[in-house]
């Protein structure tokens, strides 16, 4: 019989594999135990524990940081589904803390105030897996080369405006499709232009997909938003402010879960869209001055 002490813990396969298990699901931002339970009951595949949802971070301003460990542990104790938490870009000490808390996934997130404007975290140094945001293929591959085990396309978090998420999903998908049509000698130039490692560029060209799971995030507020992002090629969706900044959070959460599974069945999405109450009011991305746009953070 095999023994558990002969095991390999925290390798790339279990980190990336964890994201495979989240596919086709919705990961919801929650700020307290009550919201975490609503999310679990609605069928969320995981929750993101944070002190303020992006809409409030945007409204209140100031520096936004990793959440209080006590708050994260309360949510871990309240639900049985995976619990994720965010660290600031480049803040490896916050990540070390979350690893000791046995959080299931770390989001190195542009929604928080960056701690390093040059370097992201060297994620290979950790046994805990990381998800990172990307606006394009080059950025996604740079994060993967730093050890990210999952990518989410960036949107403009906290707005309820899905347009940026759409732009970035289309951009990443389009750049992948372009690579698959290239000759081998052209891939060297593509790697230079994407500012990404050649080996990863070649792998994407051969397989026609990222080597890790690709979710989408930022501005998703309705079942229709979720269905559109899935049809654009997302493996699943993060919903931040969109659920708990709306009228009937429990109903909207369950509706988004249904739409994410049956994203090709417009009748199911239509039924899920009925009687949800008020959606989050939202902000048009175009009305936000460029220096205040979160998706511009990260490089």
């Amino acid at each position: 019989m095999s023994k558990a002490n002969e095991t390999e813990v925290g390798g790339a396969r279990v980190k990336r594999g964890m994201a495979e298990m989240l596919k086709g699901g919705v990961i919801m931002d929650v700020v307290n135990v009550e919201q975490a339970k609503i999310a679990e009951d609605a069928g969320a595949v995981a929750v993101m524990a944070l002190e303020r949802v992006p809409a409030d971070i945007r409204a209140q301003g100031g520096v936004s940081r990793m959440s209080d460990p006590d708050m994260i542990e309360k949510i871990q104790a309240a639900v049985s589904i995976p619990v994720m938490a965010k660290v600031r870009i480049g803040h490896f000490a916050e990540a070390q803390i979350l690893q000791t808390l046995n959080v299931d996934y770390i989001d190195e997130s542009e929604v928080l105030t960056p701690a390093d404007y040059e370097h992201h975290i060297n994620k290979w140094n950790f046994t805990i897996p990381f998800v990172c945001g990307a606006t394009n293929l080059g950025e996604a591959l740079r994060r993967i080369s730093e050890g990210a085990a999952m990518i989410r396309s960036k949107g403009e978090a906290g707005t309820g405006d899905v347009s940026n998420a759409t732009t970035h999903m289309r951009k990443i998908g389009g750049e992948i499709r372009r690579l698959t049509s290239m000759r081998e000698d052209e891939l060297y130039v593509a790697a230079k232009e994407l500012q990404a490692p050649y080996a990863l560029v070649k792998e994407v060209a051969e397989t026609g997909k990222l080597p890790v799971v690709l979710f989408t995030a930022g501005g998703i507020a309705t079942p229709a938003d979720a269905a559109m992002m899935m049809q654009l090629g997302a493996d699943g969706v993060f919903i931040g402010s969109g659920i708990f900044k709306s009228g009937d959070a429990a109903k909207r959460a369950a509706a988004c879960v249904k739409a994410t599974t049956y994203f090709t069945d417009a009748k199911v999405v239509a039924d899920a869209s009925r009687g949800l109450g008020e959606a989050m009011v939202g902000i048009n991305v175009a009305d936000i001055p460029v220096p205040h746009r979160l998706a511009e953070r990260g490089w």
Partner: peptide, 29 residues
Amino acid sequence: AFGRQTESFEVDLELTGISGAPIRGVFIR
């Protein structure tokens, strides 16, 4: 049963009736 994601692991397993060679078992939560 084995813990949270930070405890997820791989191990070689021998399975009665299934495998000649050991199977790499990937255990994720």
